[in-house]
Design a protein around this nucleic acid. Structure first.
Lengths: 212, 212, 212, 212
DNA sequence: CATGAATGAGATTTCATTCAT
DNA sequence: AATGAATGAAATCTCATTCAT
């Protein structure tokens, strides 16, 4: 039954990544022990190292898996979003935000925090994680820039803008609000702030209403 | 000469923080050794521990010192900035950006990266570092919100906005561009993007030109 | 075809011993991995353990196989050697030397090196390997002592000697030159030194010429 | 009291080497644990690693110390030996033999066994240990060759010999007898065999009696 | 106050061996 | 008989922190 074997292997790998993610987020990368990860995954340490080269590989593979989940969430949101380019655009940005805000999407979003301490000391890890993040955000940007351009064509977005530049700024606000909310959660609610942003842009950047 | 003694002590403390900062940025917090920090500072490890409680304390104290330097830079920029509220506002935001972008302000700005691995495992550190960052950014926001409100009074800024909200969004863009530029430096130039933002806001948020 | 089966089994066993020998010599016993041995032999690790009880057994069996090869080399040399007892004696000693000097007989002769680290910690292994070596060298000594005694009878060797004692000393020189050449290869050439020994013994121990 | 400090440091280093030597000989290099070495030396593992770079360094430093002890033993024997070159020569060779035969000089002489497994996998260790052994035996050879040459001048040694060659052969017998006695201790007594060698050489190589 | 030798808990990773298929 | 994934004990080495001098 090679088919069932493959499924079991995939499931085991998934369990290990899941456990790793949890422990990394709870304890931080360096304080996380491979012992605990293996125990939570229900495998031996040896098996852990059969699947992953090192603890660092385990972290970066977890990041990879998490980005894939976020991608799927945004994709689903885009498919379900409204019928005008502007509604789709707003839905897409909101989905991205919801997919990566720890308060909403769950603590596993804090996994990315753990890479910054690694990239300072490990150039191979730096290359890999930077590549992953670049690819993820460039793909998301392309999706949304298309929607923005459609909005321009439909007359729903100011036509004298540089769509790429605006997309980047919108994404930066996503990044920035999330970053800020991390250490100032009592004051900053990224989702609420984003609603306010849409209101602000309406009449400026946007020529028609964007609130649901 | 107690005066000279005090100066010598302060200078020694400064040297230790400087050395710590360098090593933390070069190697990452966990890989950084107190041995090397002490050696670079020209003191013994015992002395290091007379001044700081722990390696974590050393990191957080370094962060504190760096935020103070950034604060001074922004203050200086505001004092030298133009004579209209809008020019002052733009100068202030630009100064903040320049003060905290690693590419411009130097690699020591990467110090903050090292904090995220710590806060996951040490709640006391989390409280302290979050407090520092909250205070720093709230103070900067207050300064700039005042300028924005002056801009409203002077008719240079749209009057139907929530100044606090807009300030937060402008700051978020600062955060977000810096965050993004870290892992996508070939594509993102935060300073250039900010100039583009001002152009975009002109005619929308701003009612008059903001470029120098 | 049970006959062909037996041959296949023997050949497989041979391949495993060959691979083990190579890896032990290249990496040292403890650094050698059963994974690599199995891979080089073209079998699975499970098969390896069907043929051999443990990694130690694999090493000692390799030693055994190598001693058998050396025995065959010496036997062949004796059969082909000259017609006088003295010529046969010299040929036999030279053959032994050539069969066990790593520089001439190949690096597999270094296999025995790996044994000394094992015998310190494993008394069962010690018994087995000491037994193998004792048997090998006693057999060789008996062969050569007979030749020496024949030489005495033929008047080619001083008659007032203890043949057993002299044989032992000649063998010790073989051992010693090989041992020394291992760590001082630039200075010691065991084969050349042995020729010099024969010259020296001529006129003393031997009463007639021994050089070919 | 820097003087007393130095002495304490030296004594501590000595204790660590002593403990290491014991454990290496008892268990073999790879099976020896740094934990046990530290415990027997009465220091912590950290201290062990303050003095020695690695377990391998600890082994090679132990070998170095042991060679120095052997050197001192031979030197003392030479100083106390008889008044004729021949007596000194025989005393020197006997002292060397007694200094390095495990049965007589103690089990620590088995330390050298442990290096052969290391040199196969560690070229830096190989260089170092080969250098140590080369230096030790070359120095001993020089000492004894001088005595042999003095014996020639005094007419006590055959004058048509190559003193270097003969020295090497005598040393090889030392090596070889020790090697052989290791795995065939019931049959080989190196000291007795050496006495027999002197008897054999008398009248051949030596022109006068050498037994005390 | 300063020093730096000593500590020892703790972490990652390896690898011989087993056994279900 | 053959396979190779899984095991998990074990081992070296590091490093923040202390404290006697």
């Amino acid at each position: 039954m090679p088919n069932s074997d493959q499924a079991r292997v995939r499931e085991k790998r998934h369990r290990m990544l899941q456990a790793a993610q949890e422990v990394f987020v709870e304890r931080g990368f360096d304080a996380a022990g491979t012992d605990e990860i293996a125990r939570r995954a229900g495998v031996s340490k040896g098996t852990l190292y059969n699947f992953f080269d090192s603890k660092t590989d385990l972290l970066l593979s977890s990041v990879e898996a998490q980005l894939e989940r976020s991608r799927a969430l945004v994709e689903a949101a885009l498919n379900e979003s409204g019928d005008t380019p502007l509604k789709q655009l707003v839905a897409g940005i909101r989905a991205l935000l919801l997919a990566v805000v720890p308060d909403r999407a769950g603590p596993e979003q804090l996994l990315l925090d753990q890479v910054w301490g690694i990239v300072a000391r490990d150039s191979a890890a730096r290359s890999r994680v930077f590549g992953l993040l670049q690819a993820f955000f460039r793909d998301r940007e392309i999706e949304l820039r298309v929607l923005l351009e459609n909005g321009v064509k439909a007359g729903a977005v100011r036509s004298d803008i540089d769509a790429g530049e605006v997309t980047l700024l919108l994404f930066s606000i996503v990044h920035g609000l999330i970053y800020r909310a991390r250490f100032d959660p009592g004051r900053i609610d990224p989702v609420r702030s984003f609603e306010a942003l849409f209101d602000l842009l309406q009449g400026g950047l946007f020529t028609e209403g964007v609130r649901a």
